[in-house]
Design a protein around this nucleic acid. Sequence first.
DNA 1: CTCAGCGAGCCGTTACATCA
DNA 2: TTGATGTAACGGCTCGCTGA
Length: 214
Amino acid sequence: MSQDYEMMTSQMNEHEDHIALISQIYPGFYTQIATHQGEPKPRRRRKKNKGGENSQCAVAKKRKLNQEQVTLLELNFGNEHKLESERKDRIASELGLDPRQVAVWFQNRRARWKNKKLEEEYSKLKSLHETVVLDKCRLESEVVKLKEQLSEAEKEILQLTERVDGVSSKSTSSSVLSMEAIDPVFHGEFGYEDVFYIGENNYVLGMEWMNLFM
DNA sequence: CTCAGCGAGCCGTTACATCA
DNA sequence: TTGATGTAACGGCTCGCTGA
């Protein structure tokens, strides 16, 4: 630890001591200043525990919970995430901890659990979104393909109609082939009834679905 | 019904420990 | 030595309960 750092931290501690003292004597003094300036309330800074004094050193050594304590706390958390007063006191005495420590541990554990859940939920939604986007792309390309097929079919119909028109204009008026004879094709309920007429035992490739309606 | 006091929980942050 | 990460602890705030 450098001397500069020591000096800096001691100055900071001194400053924080002043703030703490002023806050004790005049509660809300600093928050009032901030409110007047229209800024968010500054949070009071905690004093650093450098472990210099005996009592502070003892606290510092207590900080980290041992494996047994953590295991038992995890076990209790697994049973129930909330902590009633009785349970808190019981766990605290079992582990030789302050009930406040148990409460804090549960609070932090709930926060960690919540974060983990959120991360899981996020990755689930992300992968779901990716599959939906892929599906959308697939469907869009299918629509394009079907539109192309439709336009091809329309061209073909047009060509056939023109050919039939040519034949009928060449023939005499007494011809057996009148437009009515050719066109019954469009006389169905929806105008296209016979376009797709297929003999009972006939099969058109790619039109399997038509059989459902016949 | 209202209000102050209190306890518990959540959130954001800080302080410290540990590790690469 | 230092920056990143994990976690214990704290302060501020809200909410629900309770008794006056």
